[in-house]
Write a protein that binds this DNA or RNA. Sequence first.
RNA 1: GCCGUCGUGGCGGAAUUGGUAGACGCACGGGACUCAAAAUCCCGCGAUCGCAAGGUCAUGAGAGUUCGAUUCUCUCCGACGGCACCA
Length: 867
Amino acid sequence: MQKKYNHKQVENKWPASTKASAGKHAVKVRQYNHHEIESKWQKLWLEKKLYKTKELADKPKYYVLDMFPYPSGAGLHVGHPKGYIATDVVARMKMMRGFNVLHPMGWDAFGLPAENYALKNKVHPAVATKKNIQVFKKQLGLLGFTYDWDREINTTDPNYYKWTQWIFLQMFKRGLAYESNEPINWCPSCKTGLANEDLEDGKCERCGSAIEQKPMRQWVLKITDYAERLLKDLDLLDKWPEPIKEMQRNWIGRSEGASVRFTVIARSEERATRQSSDSTIEVFTTRPDTLFGATYVVLAPEHKLIEKLKIKIENFGEVKKYIEQAKNKTALERTELQKEKTGVEIKGVKAINPANGEELPIFVADYVLGGYGTGAIMAVPAHDERDFEFAKKYNLPIKIVVMPDGGSTTAGNTAEQIVQEEINKILSEHAFSGNGYNVKSDFLSGLRTLKAKEKMIQWLEEKGFGKRQVQYKLRDWVFSRQRYWGEPIPLVRCEKCGWVTVPEKDLPLELPKVKHYEPSGTGESPLTNIKNWMNTKCPQCGGQAKREMNTMPQWAGSCWYYLRYEDPDNKKALVDKAKEKYWSPIDLYVGGAEHATRHLIYARFWHKFLYDIGAVNNIEPFTRLQNVGLILAEDGRKMSKRWNNVINPDDVVKQYGADAMRLYEMFMGPFDQPCAWSTQGVVGMYRFLDKVWNLKERVASNKKQDTNNIQYSISNIQVTLNQTIKKVTEDIENLRFNTAISQLMILVNEMSRSKVLDPKSYAILLQLLAPFAPHICEELWSQLGNKKSIFLSDWPKYDVDKLQFDTMKLAVQVNGRVRATIEVQTGVGEEEIKSVALVDKNVKKWLDGKEPKKVIYVKGRLVSVVV
RNA sequence: GCCGUCGUGGCGGAAUUGGUAGACGCACGGGACUCAAAAUCCCGCGAUCGCAAGGUCAUGAGAGUUCGAUUCUCUCCGACGGCACCA
């Protein structure tokens, strides 16, 4: 792109006092005026459309993206832009390195917080959102980002959510969206159902209320169908932080094991007769090798078998009472009460252990979860801590079938006493849940745990008692919200046809504009009150029908937004045209680690689905992921209105300038680590920029008498300059901004020490600094006489031959301690260096006449002498 | 409880991945300039002994490998983050 600046608008005034020979105490020109420079260039960049992005065939593309913000009512604090600054630095450097860069921005504006804010302040969410976006946009504008605002997106724009709805429809058509009536997490304060991912310690992630379990009609997305791929493909993401991948692995929670069927019989205690029942209990276990140690079976309170066995159960009243109690516990209570396990025996029925035919008692207990596995377990108290606790409390038998390794015995001929000893040891405190070898296990006895598992699975499969099975902790995604401010779900309920999709041509299905949108709390969406919207015709048969009244959750819009930036006109049906994707996948994605198991899982899920239907051409959306470390307040706490410690970026920009603030946020520490704000730190950056500004006085003019000095300056500075080009380039690529800046400071310090400075070196400094401090560098660049923007210039390259000085200093160690420093010519060979080191007088002193045993030379570093 | 990350001056943090620990910045101390202050510039700045040259001790604690460890191994202590009755 060949853009030219109109320099009529830019006065290149050199300070009157500019003199190449700045004397020792020459009066300094005052600091640079950041107000003037920053607003001037922000305006010019915009006017000249420096950031206008186009698909170009002749340049490699680079797509760098921030997790787009939620435009809250509170505005930005200094922590928000940290990630945006980083992507901006990378974007600017990539631009200068010849890449065609896309660095867009948009708004994730649907969802609970926006709606709650609107309710509280008695404004319509649409109005509040619009206003908040304006504030955010203005604040971001002050920081001089490279956004192409022509590509701005907003998830609440019907033109946008048309495609959110479209994707939902595709999922529905392929059976990935289903209706369910299972109990779900219900927030009594937000008055809506929530997904597992929306909870924090059993509380609502948003408002902190205790979550209840409530059966409710809801739409659920079958993310579990993708569990295996979501897990496996993590291995492909070699540019993701390992901790984030680990968090996703844990969240998906894959475990291998077996499902085992226990036959249920009816046995009355008085009559001791055994009647068959046509029921079985299926359990999931990761330890099929311990099947011989099972001493009872437990059903979750939600287990359907209980109702089915009703007439056979002798103490049904008692059982029912327990189930009711369990139901009334909130998720929080259920986990908080884990110290004390409770349960009730279901009398009149027994389960048959398929391995040995033993009759086992059946319990109902809420330490078994209804939502995981089959909602039933075989209890092996000797080898599971929870079963152990429960068995102790209810005096149930504990049978040891696995022995820990070690001891003098070999598998197969275990001495009875040793076994008994181990048993006593184990039974005194804990279950033994580790691996070992089997005992008292019939055909498994003597086998090591891994082999025993395999053998048992084989046996179960042969006999038809069970099979190999994989389980995930990941649950399907509860996708409907009983709230107003979200995308309407494009489904219609017809009395005859059942659920029918809204035809694609009728999308977007717009959210009706209403006055009252308070949540009803009944489990129905507030949209229910809008009768003329709710009642509609069936698109299939034309009969009476009603719309789905729930809306989509906050995360829906952010699942695919990165694709929307591809399309500046917001018109094309780009979600279904894989081949037209120019920018995807994202080369660098930056955002907070708190999204590890929410947005980043949901988005990967949707992306894989879009891949399956041919809408995108790669299986992972985010090639490289980088986490931003939180900025804490000066007092070390989180920035919050509550603590009154929030720092507003507008104030910082006003006082010290956007460049100083950008520089400081990149310098404060390793990018991904949390760090406390320091206003003094910003002052330091301001001083640094001031130094850079004042350096221009030393840039030699064309006066002849400076020629010698320039030569001197060039040779003196060029090693540092080349080192700096190398380091800054590599550091920005690796997102190690703090060390890049410190290297720039080293260069500037050196330049300040020199009396004159050649314009070329100065220009290179400006180019290297420009991604961090774009305004001041652009200004100084233009003052050097450049007509084109510094960001259209080519990124400097370093000269490999000029990375080292002519001589190098080496440390000499004697027995591991540094005793001397020698200076040698760079090209000198190893043997010569060693002999130079050995004749050094300090080295001789420490050798004390002894002969060195060994002399080690580490290239360019040191010589180590061992005596 | 399980998984992960991390412990370096008064503070934020560097350290080429096993090679002179403390780069760079902040704070602090001294000096120059000034009537004075601010700003700016110069010098100093881990602890300790010494007038000095220089020595000794120092990267959470303890051990180990090595000529040499902030870096690798083991044990322990502490902080932060995630998950949590997931069978």
